[in-house]
Simulated assay, not measured.
Amino acid sequence: MQNEPLVSVIIPTYNRGRLILDSVTSVLNQTYKNIELIVVDDCSTDNTEEILKSINDSRIKYVKLEKNSGACIARNKGIELSTGEFIAFNDSDDLWITTKLEKQLCFLKNYNADIVICKMECRTPENKFIHNFPNIDQNKQISYEEILKYNCASTQTIFGKSECFRNVMFDTRMPRLQDWDEVLRLSQKYRIFYQNEILVNTFFQKESISTHPEKAVLAMQKIFEKHKDAILSDPAIVESFFKKKASFVCKTGKNPKEEMKMILKYNPSAGTFIKSFLSALGLYKYIFNLKQKF
């Protein structure tokens, strides 16, 4: 272990006492042993602190914030406290495959990457399979433009050189899609590769931020403001971006009139015209929500 670089693993948590032990255990049980695990407690009011302090492992560093500040501030605090050559992230309700760090570190070195993103298996809290994410079937370098077109990153799948995250920290103003925003900005400076292997099991919790589509709409607007020129320079990116935003708008119960107008303007087609027309009539959201049921 003397020649193995230290990997700092950061887990933000808030009131996940019933779940945090499994998440932490999946990190401590990695085949790659030279790690420090920094758990940043976002001022939990449940038994999270008690559970974490009961774990007898010197690799754990527990920090509790003075006030509830959000996952991005917690992750950034973990980055500031980290001492490893590499950094990885997990969420307090997700589980790593035992070989995750070992395989991602090997992949990063073999491909001369700065950051590696792996695939994850998505499940319900009852452990029912939903789908795998992202929908990419080969190892490859992924560009800034590709990430704009298709959000292929989730925080618990990201592994990379610590200098990358110190130079590009999480944007604390993002109400959602913080991982997409982070990787987009990282991709403008660093070499990011996709590793086509499932190394994470993620569970969608009912109280998760991902259940709030209105926050996703706001987040999409912020991402558009940051990357407007790049988005509008490519009709395919325009269509992909605003279709994604339109889906969130529909989930809020509204019709995505402006989003469909943007797609029609920059990438016109008969299909886009029909969708824009349906949205203007107030019908698009009903068709969208009906499709979601099947």
Score class of each variant (00 low, 15 high):
K189W: 01
K189L: 09
Y190L: 02
Y190C: 03
Y194S: 07
Y194W: 02
N196F: 00
E197T: 09
I198A: 02
V200Q: 06
T202V: 13
F203G: 02
K206G: 01
E207L: 08
E207S: 15
I209P: 00
S210A: 13
H212Q: 14
P213L: 04
P213E: 11
P213V: 04
E214W: 03
A216G: 07
L218W: 09
Q221V: 00
F224I: 10
F224S: 13
K228P: 04
K228A: 14
I231V: 11
L232V: 08
S233N: 15
S233A: 15
P235K: 04
E239D: 12
F242H: 10
K243V: 07
K243E: 14
K244I: 01
K244G: 11
A246N: 05
V249D: 05
K251V: 05
T252S: 07
K254D: 10
E258Q: 15
M260Q: 14
M260Y: 13
K261V: 05
M262H: 04
M262D: 10
L264C: 10
G271I: 03
F273A: 15
I274L: 14
I274S: 02
K275G: 04
S276M: 10
L278M: 08
L278D: 01
S279D: 01
S279M: 00
A280T: 12
L281D: 02
L281S: 01
G282W: 04
G282R: 03
Y284T: 03
Y284F: 11
Y284P: 02
K285L: 04
Y286H: 09
I287M: 04
I287H: 03
I287Y: 09
F288D: 07
N289L: 14
